[in-house]
Simulated assay, not measured.
Amino acid sequence: MEQDHLVAGLRDLRSASKLLLVASILGILVSVAILSAVPALLSIPLTAQTSIRGLASRIIAWLPLLIIGALLGLASGVISLYAIYAKLLPSSKHLAKWRPSVFDTPRKLLYIGYWGALAAGVSAFIAAVALAAGALPGLMQAAQAESLIMLVALLMVPFILVVLAGILGFVGDVGMIMLFYELGGALQSERFKHVALLTVAYILGGVLVGLIPNPAAMLPGLVVVAGLQAVAFYLAMEECTRILSSTPQQPPAGV
């Protein structure tokens, strides 16, 4: 039944929003950890006598915080991947079955964008590892111009794949924005439209922050972007819960 697809879609979307909220909070903690450590590392005077020794001592002093930040970042990434591929994409599939004319385009953008980004990202990683383990050592030893040209050409392969992954990821983001906005219209929910606008804000904010050349100045922006992301997914989670509580649901089989 169509109503069953709506309920299933909202349940998956609520789960995705909850997981992405957790990932966003972890992202804030990672940003704070880096924000605490990087300025101290960058403050070391770069003199021949003190730069290496001072950098080593600072790294050792901040190593526990850096390790915690790395682990939190890894956890945030894993949770985000699970939320997107195991919850958000199935949610769009259910909603497309509920209202095909409204949600089929967001579903296609989500699937093409995020699956394509994952494939391109994995391919870039494999290409980089293969390049580092295979062709790179031999080419580095050769000084001929042809070898240098070949090296540059090979280095372009993972770079192009990373750029492609970014473009496809942006396509997936557009699909998510459309999903929330169209859901707001279909369910007469202004909050879902607010989530769509917040999603636009944190995506554009992330792009702008990435253009900042100074790492110390970039980090506060990352905290703000992660905060906007957390607010967006919290609102989405709450709105899914509210609508599900007021939507008639078919009892499980056998009840």
Rank of each mutant, 00 (worst) to 15 (best):
Q3G: 09
H5V: 09
L6A: 11
L6C: 12
R14Y: 07
S15Q: 09
A16W: 03
A16M: 09
K18P: 00
L20T: 06
V22C: 10
V22K: 09
S43K: 12
I44G: 09
P45C: 12
L46M: 15
Q49S: 15
R53A: 15
G54T: 02
G54N: 10
G54I: 05
L55Q: 14
I59V: 15
L63I: 02
L65W: 08
G69V: 08
L71G: 05
L71D: 04
G73A: 11
S91N: 06
S91D: 06
A96C: 12
K97R: 15
W98Q: 04
W98Y: 15
R107D: 05
R107Y: 06
L109M: 09
L109V: 02
G113H: 02
G113Q: 02
A120N: 05
G121L: 05
G121W: 03
S123E: 04
F125N: 04
A132M: 12
A132T: 06
A133F: 13
A135F: 11
G138E: 14
E146F: 03
I149R: 15
I149E: 14
M150L: 15
V152F: 10
L154C: 07
F159Q: 14
L161S: 04
V163W: 10
I167N: 01
L168R: 00
G169W: 05
G172F: 02
D173E: 11
I177L: 10
M178C: 11
M178D: 10
L179W: 10
F180H: 09
L183P: 06
G184T: 02
R191V: 15
L198Y: 04
T199R: 10
V200F: 09
L204E: 02
G205T: 01
G205P: 11
L208H: 04
I212Q: 07
P213K: 01
P213E: 01
P215W: 01
M218V: 00
L222P: 00
V225I: 15
L228H: 09
Q229M: 11
A230R: 06
A232Q: 06
A232W: 04
L235H: 05
A236Y: 08
A236H: 08
C240W: 03
I243T: 12
S246H: 12
Q249L: 07
